[in-house]
Design a protein around this nucleic acid. Structure first.
Length: 289
DNA sequence: AATTCATTCAACCGCAGAGCG
DNA sequence: ACGCTCTGCGGTTGAATGAAT
């Protein structure tokens, strides 16, 4: 498309015409071999050293998103999708941060999956994928909303800070179940309510499913075929714990009296709406026991 | 079988922040 | 303090593929 003509790349100055587009098996081999031998870093000079006519950026991307060992490719599991949704509710479009809690997935892959699958599902369920609130709820464009957004961001940052601290302490044993799972469930972080609604929504979506499989993938099917919900990944448990005090207790419940009352109510009600949505659904899977 | 439309995802771009001289 | 380079991130694109007509 000519309308999408891009300005000359910064690399254009160099005499070497850098290759673009899909990587060939040969290029993959060269890059992998070089990194296995010398390690990665210094992406600017790496392509030349590795004998590749690619820019460093392209090499880095290829390595990070495709060639790196232990990359898990293919269908996202139910657990992974739930993790993404939960994390997105708190982190927003911070794909690298989300990817940090799905060690075998790349930010690019998660981002793609969100945009092509998860976002659409949430919309279909009547949930705004950006706010994770029911999209039917009023969305005031006034100052109070802005104020609450500040509050939201503040709480989020606190939670993240705690998350980072704690992850440094517990990450080494990723296979261990959270020892404080009972606390996690007891505190019932409200983001899990979205998860509930999410699942309930799919119960409702059975009808849609019956209409045929247009637009649905194998991964989508997992949502219907998977009955049990696994919610014991350590990173998530940590997040929830962090959020339970930083976010839930401190901010979200409207402790800040300076916030417009209606806004507080609205946000409280929004979650109630989600719960109502859940309760009215025929599919009440025991997410939180 | 041919064509059109929709979806997916690898790869690209621009930007921002960190680090360094 | 400033400018430069490198790195990483998020948004976007478009070729490939699949589904529908």
């Amino acid at each position: 498309m000519l309308s999408k003509m891009r300005p000359p790349s910064p690399n254009r100055k160099k005499e070497v015409r850098l290759k673009r587009g899909p990587w060939t098996a040969e290029e993959d081999k060269l890059l992998t071999a070089y990194i296995q031998k010398h390690g990665y870093g210094s992406w600017g000079s790496l392509p030349h050293k590795a004998g590749l006519e690619r820019c460093g950026k392209s090499c880095r991307l290829r390595w990070i998103n495709y060639l790196r060992p232990y990359i898990k490719r293919g269908k996202f599991s139910l657990e992974e999708e739930q993790t993404i949704i939960q994390l997105h509710a708190f982190l927003g479009n911070r794909w690298s941060a989300i990817a940090a809690h799905l060690p075998k997935r790349t930010d690019n892959e998660i981002k793609n999956h969100w945009n092509t699958h998860l976002k659409k599902r949430l919309i279909k369920m009547g949930i705004d994928p950006m706010t994770h609130k029911p999209s039917t709820s009023p969305s005031p464009k006034n100052g109070s909303n802005l104020s609450h957004m500040t509050q939201w961001e503040s709480a989020r940052l606190q939670a993240e800070a705690r998350l980072v601290r704690e992850s440094k302490q517990v990450v080494p044993n990723l296979t261990t179940r959270p020892t404080r799972w009972s606390q996690l469930t007891r505190s019932s972080p409200r983001c899990l309510d979205v998860l509930k609604a999410w699942q309930a929504g799919w119960g409702e979506a059975e009808e849609w499913r019956g209409q045929g499989k247009k637009g649905s993938s194998d991964a989508d099917d997992a949502w219907f075929e998977e009955d049990s919900v696994i919610l014991h990944s350590l990173p998530i448990a940590n997040i929830m714990e962090g959020l339970s005090d930083a976010f839930i207790l401190n901010s979200w419940m409207g402790v800040d009296k300076s916030t417009d009352e209606n806004t507080v109510m609205e946000n409280g009600n929004c979650w109630d709406s989600v719960l109502n949505f859940l309760n009215s659904s025929p599919c009440g899977s025991p997410v939180l026991g």
